[in-house]
Design a binder for these strands. Structure first.
Length: 779
DNA sequence: GCGGATCAC
DNA sequence: TATGGTGATCCGC
């Protein structure tokens, strides 16, 4: 914000000097001390009517500029949006399930379309292009459809953007119906083009239509899989296409001398690492597979091998659910805590708005900081419930920021970037569940938790003032102090405590933030005392007695709950209903290694130097979202990848049994075993009692009961939603597979199965143990 | 889960 | 060319 203001001032100064100051562009004026002279002029004229008037006029011009820029942003974003829609409409005709990548790329599987097209009459494959003056340059005969690259002159000299022309011939690839005169007819025929039935032809057609419609050119790659298609699209970059036939030899020929950097997924760093091993090309990647297997992770090695063999994904995954959302900002050095908290809150506000637009609630808040030395640091914290509002996010982010500020005190944090991210989104089911449990929890536990807190005086406004440095007493303070054996980062403890407070919305101070989910009304009135842990109403009205009870409850000494150890199947349902601590994941099928045909359509009118007139204009029109995005759009491609499912030659498969092990499963196993399971003994993190059972479903149920005793009944009565997961099977694996290799391919590995609720067992459990100190705390 | 790092666009 | 912004993933803890 400051930087904007600054640059605004600077530019207006410059503008003003342009008006009043010395113009040294004239002949014979070079070499003079321009600045000095300008200074003298300014001084001399300052205060004069002329000066004032010039100033006024200059300001008016500045205002005009500002308005103009706003308008420009508006226009450009609309136009780009329109172009995007148009392109997508076209692509959908070739593959309704095409996969967009970003704003300007897409993968298509045109196998089916191609089959269908084989029998199409010529008329159905004929398109018209419109030009301003056909006769002018005589280059309109697009007679080179057999060339790999479309006649560039022809394509780029058809610069009509059919803005409002809905009767655009391109839309109706039939001939004469809308022609009125012979002349028009001849004209149209002259400007028509028929595309063939091959993949190459189809892709040419697509590119042609895109350009006619939007004036954006595109590059394309056609290959047996997405990876190859993408690399193909690079081959004839500005406004061209390239095809690798679905043939093993062709693939290997293509791959052979390809620099590894061309491979999607291999970036600057990986390139350098491999280079150090003398690996520059894909074939060298294969030759050096032995050392690579020793020097890189299993995942990386597999990925490298896939690359060197030309293997890539052959199915287009639908856009998965979003996994995180963030916002960040770069600025000139910011070093006062106050500014930093303010900015942090602003980011939270923006993020909250974005989250709410998509109706998302997440559990993990991550603060990202970049200092003036460009060093990046992230700090994350996961809450027990979820966050979505500005206040909720800020409550966490603020604490994360506070730690960082404190960590360098008394020096200031010298920041150049700050960002806030929310991840760990709840699915619909979780949302319902959380809402229920939180409301119930609060209903029942609110008063007591309020009472449990130490009185506090401050009226501090957390949102605008730097928070005090001394941690406040809170719900868990005593417990923590008593139990904490390992020394923890002070911040984390504090944050956890505060978050617990926050979760319970149990502000001691009514002036303090009160979340929207629960009002603070009556929070001072105590009618009954209910233990927030076991939800049992307490007979004694003595707060001390209650506190003692809570202590005991947390210690587990009061928990008499006996969990049945039977492994009855219906536990699965219960587990699900209560809270899905453990869920079985389906393994993603590793389909990657089929040799299929993939096409990559298009680059953007990559503003190649020779087609600038054609493309620049179109690309200058870019959404207003960010300057960076604009620049990016100016320099990159609208590529679409076409995927042809022509099965081919040798199927080189790296698949083996390990692929059955979904990486998430493995990870779950690992983390779970590191938290709750040790040597097959399950210890409830709430009551701290050893559980006799080894059945995780049973164990989970116990944890549920422990945590949500009051709510459980209600939920089990109301929600019946059987799941298919085989928990028993899963639970058997857990513990024994703790060190199973993570074998998924990065492109398919960590995608969540659409059928499965995203909350994994480990996540839930880990949430309970939500941070290291909580874990310790419970122990 | 956390934090650092890499990568794509 | 360098720098930004957003989102995803991996890896070692």
């Amino acid at each position: 914000m400051d930087s904007t203001k600054e640059s605004g001032d600077v530019s207006s100064d410059n503008g003003f000097l342009l008006r009043v100051g010395l113009n040294d562009n004239k002949a014979g004026m070079q070499g003079l001390d321009k600045e000095k002279i300008n200074k003298i002029i300014m001084e001399a004229t300052k205060g004069s009517r002329f000066y004032e008037n010039e100033l006024k006029k200059d300001q008016q011009v500045n205002q005009r500029i500002e308005k103009m820029m706003q308008l420009k942003d508006k226009i450009t974003s609309q136009q780009l949006l329109k172009a995007q829609l148009q392109v997508r409409k076209i692509l959908a005709q070739y593959d309704p399930n095409f996969m967009p990548v970003g704003l300007d790329e897409a993968y298509l599987n045109i196998t089916e379309y191609l089959e269908e097209r084989q029998n199409w009459p010529e008329d159905k494959r004929k398109y018209f292009y419109k030009t301003d003056n056909v006769t002018e340059n005589g280059k309109q005969d697009l007679n080179a459809p057999d060339e790999l690259k479309l006649n560039e002159d022809a394509l780029s000299s058809s610069p009509i953007l059919f803005e409002d022309n809905t009767s655009l011939a391109e839309e109706q690839p039939t001939t004469t119906t809308h022609l009125h005169t012979e002349e028009q007819r001849d004209q149209q025929l002259l400007n028509s083009i028929v595309f063939g039935t091959s993949a190459q032809e189809v892709v040419k057609e697509i590119r042609f239509r895109i350009e006619q419609k939007t004036r954006l050119t595109a590059s394309a790659g056609i290959a047996p899989n997405t990876m190859l298609a993408k690399m193909c699209s690079d081959q004839n970059k500005p406004n061209g296409q390239f095809r690798i036939p679905p043939d093993r030899q062709a693939v290997m020929d293509f791959i052979k001398d390809l620099p590894i950097r061309k491979v999607p997924g291999i970036g600057k760093v990986t390139e350098k690492l491999l280079k150090a091993l003398g690996i520059l090309t894909c074939s060298e990647l294969y030759q050096q597979r032995a050392p690579i297997s020793l020097l890189f992770s299993e995942t990386s090695w597999r990925n490298f091998m896939d690359i060197s063999l030309g293997l890539g994904s052959t199915h287009l995954e639908k856009d998965g659910e979003r996994k995180s959302m963030s916002t960040e900002r770069t600025f000139g050095e910011m070093n006062t805590a106050e500014d930093q908290y303010d900015l942090c809150q602003e980011l939270c506000k923006d993020l909250a708005q974005d989250l709410q637009k998509e109706g998302l609630k997440g559990k993990t808040v991550t603060l990202k900081l970049k200092n003036v030395n460009f060093e990046v640091k992230t700090k994350a914290f996961t809450v027990l419930s979820s966050v979505s509002t500005e206040e909720e996010i800020f409550a966490v982010a603020k604490e994360l920021l506070r730690t960082e500020i404190d960590s360098v005190a008394p020096h200031p944090l010298r920041l150049r970037l700050m960002g806030v991210r929310v991840s760990g989104f709840l699915n619909e089911e979780d949302k319902k569940y959380q809402q229920r449990s939180i409301t119930n929890f609060l209903k029942q536990g609110k008063e007591t938790t309020v009472l449990r807190l130490q009185p506090e005086k401050s009226n501090e406004d957390h949102f605008t003032k730097p928070p005090e440095t001394s941690p406040r007493e809170s719900f868990f303070d005593k417990k923590r102090a008593a139990r904490q054996k390992t020394s923890q980062e002070p911040f984390i403890n504090e944050a956890v405590d505060k978050q617990n407070l926050h979760d319970m919305k149990s502000s001691v101070n009514p002036m303090e933030e009160t979340g929207p989910t629960i009002g603070s009304e009556n929070s001072n009135e105590v009618k009954s005392l209910t233990c927030p842990v076991c939800f049992e109403e307490q007979r004694s009205s003595s707060l001390e007695a209650l506190n003692r009870h809570i202590d005991e409850c947390l210690n587990g000494t009061l928990v008499k709950e006996k969990i049945a150890t039977s492994k009855s199947a219906n536990l699965r349902e219960n587990t699900h209903n209560l809270s899905p601590y453990i869920k079985h994941k389906t393994s993603d099928t590793h389909t990657k290694n089929k040799m299929n045909t993939l096409v990559d359509v298009g680059h953007p009118s990559n503003v190649s130097k020779n087609s600038i007139s054609n493309c620049t204009e179109a690309f200058a029109i870019v959404p207003s979202k960010s300057r960076a995005e604009k620049e990016h759009s100016l320099s990159s491609d609208t590529s679409s990848y076409l995927y042809l499912d022509q099965n081919v030659s040798s199927k080189i498969s790296l698949e083996n049994a390990e692929h059955c092990e979904n990486s998430e499963c493995v990870q779950e196993t690992k983390s779970y075993s590191s938290t709750a399971i040790q040597d097959d003994i399950l210890v409830c993190p709430v009551c701290n009692l050893e559980q006799k059972t080894t059945d995780l479903a049973v164990f989970n149920r116990h944890v549920d009961v422990c945590l949500n005793k009051g709510i459980i009944q209600e939920l089990t009565e109301e929600i019946v939603c059987p799941i298919k997961n085989n928990i028993t099977e899963n639970s058997k694996r857990i513990g024994s597979l703790g060190k199973a290799p993570q074998s998924m391919n990065p492109t398919t590995g960590t995608k969540r199965s659409g059928l499965m609720p995203p909350q994994s067992a480990s996540k839930k459990v880990k949430t309970c143990n939500s941070s290291r100190n909580i874990e310790t705390f419970f122990k």
